[in-house]
């Protein structure tokens, strides 16, 4: 353990330089989010992740945001365990019929003001799963969405660019 700790102190950090906020995401956010709400939430946001039917690919990349390379917390973002503590719901997957109610209840349990970020191609319009008897559709067919981050799955860098748009002016 001593070696690992020492190396951690001596060696340069692995953390990547922060990327620029995604332009498309900035535009989408600007059109939807009320300036007053933004001011109240400031630059520190708590995120509750909800898998509403994804294949788990998006979750893997969202997880990666916490690793030493992306270190999401340096930007003021934090994943929390309950929607009651959250400012942002990060929702993945085509919403399945079996997850619809759970997603609606999670949204209702999140205090205002709140933002919803739909992550992944499936979250936009159900993607490759569209048309199934067990799928409702994209996230916006169940709850209002403020920001879409596309990709199958989006890379951690793309996720970071999208999230940064939330706290940029």
């Amino acid at each position: 353990m001593r070696t690992l700790v020492l190396e951690g102190i001596i060696k340069a950090p692995l953390t990547e330089a922060p990327p620029k906020a995604d332009k498309a995401a900035l535009a989408e956010i600007a059109s939807k989010v009320d300036a007053a709400a933004k001011k109240r939430l400031g630059r520190s946001l708590s995120i509750r992740e909800v898998d509403a039917g994804s294949c788990n690919g998006c979750e893997l990349e969202i997880h990666a945001l916490n690793n030493a390379f992306y270190d999401l917390e340096r930007f003021g973002f934090r994943f929390v365990a309950s929607p009651r503590h959250a400012d942002v719901l990060m929702v993945t997957g085509p919403v399945t019929t079996n997850m619809r109610e759970a997603l609606e209840r999670t949204y209702a349990a999140t205090p205002d003001p709140k933002w919803v970020v739909a992550v992944g191609d499936c979250a936009v319009d159900a993607g490759i799963f569209a048309g199934s008897y067990a799928v409702v559709g994209g996230v916006s067919s169940v709850i209002p969405v403020d920001l879409h981050i596309r990709g199958c799955p989006p890379s951690p860098m793309q996720l970071l660019q999208g999230l940064l748009a939330l706290i940029e002016k």
Binding site: D51, G53, G93, T96, F129, S132
Partner: peptide, 11 residues
């Protein structure tokens, strides 16, 4: 279980 059933075999 069954919450993320997407009907893949049907698709």
């Amino acid at each position: 279980l069954g919450y993320v059933h997407k009907g893949i075999e049907g698709l």
